[in-house]
């Protein structure tokens, strides 16, 4: 499997493309034994932009993350921290 798939960079890039304050986007990767948790922080005013109506945007980001992590044969989850 290609080692060049970076879940952190992937989420960071997508989040930055969605928000008004890309400088305030921060993603940290918390590695567990089988699951990687990506913690996404954005400016307070951008929370709606990454969550979306009825959580559609964060769901879509999770779907992309699933595709990426299946390539790495890992499980990954995305959490938005306030």
């Amino acid at each position: 499997m290609p080692a060049n798939v970076s879940l952190k960079e992937l989420i960071e890039f997508i989040a930055k493309a969605l928000v008004d304050n890309p400088d305030e986007v921060d993603v940290s990767e918390v590695a567990g034994e089988q699951t990687v948790v990506l913690e996404l922080r954005v400016a307070k005013s951008d929370l709606g932009k990454v969550i979306g109506k009825q959580g559609r945007t964060v769901k879509a980001m999770r779907a992309i993350l699933n595709a990426a992590s299946s390539k790495l044969r890992k499980r990954a989850d995305l959490e938005i921290l306030e």
Partner: peptide, 17 residues
């Protein structure tokens, strides 16, 4: 089609942003 739908939705959101 979940991944394709997600990518399509995010593309739409990026255009709005």
């Amino acid at each position: 089609g979940a991944t394709l739908d997600a990518l399509q939705y995010l593309t739409l959101r990026v255009l709005q942003a």
